[in-house]
């Protein structure tokens, strides 16, 4: 059983309490959806990186504190590098977590 550190509960909890909730740091476009082309809107709605390697993603502690938080997980090894609260940026690369992905802005005109 995998244990995931919940940044709100501040402890490791069993994986079964959590739910995956998609890629993190996807910014909703500032423009009104009616003023955007279908292509622009679809970029925000559907296009994801589907990364191999370290991936910033949202998790939901559904059967615990009921909070969403962000995590960086390696999609190859399934190892969680770090978890952090909503609204925070991924911690800067350090010796222990050498290659964390940077937050990115998407949406709007490409």
């Amino acid at each position: 059983m995998m244990l995931i550190h919940c940044p709100y509960c501040e402890e490791k909890r069993p994986e079964i309490e959590f739910a995956y909730a998609g890629e993190a740091h996807i910014h909703r476009p500032v423009k009104d959806a009616d003023d955007m082309t279908d292509e622009e809107w679809s970029h925000f709605m559907f296009l994801r990186d589907n990364k191999r390697g370290d991936h910033a993603e949202r998790w939901w502690h559904a059967n615990g504190c009921n909070m969403f938080f962000n995590a960086v997980r390696n999609t190859v090894t399934d190892k969680f590098l770090v978890t952090y609260k909503m609204g925070e940026l991924p911690p800067k690369a350090s010796a222990s977590n050498a290659k964390l992905p940077a937050a990115k802005k998407t949406g709007g005109a490409k």
Binding site: C9, I16, E17, N63, G64, C65, N66
Partner: peptide, 10 residues
Amino acid sequence: GTRTIFEGAP
């Protein structure tokens, strides 16, 4: 005390 899961039941 905490909210958790009992098999399928919260």
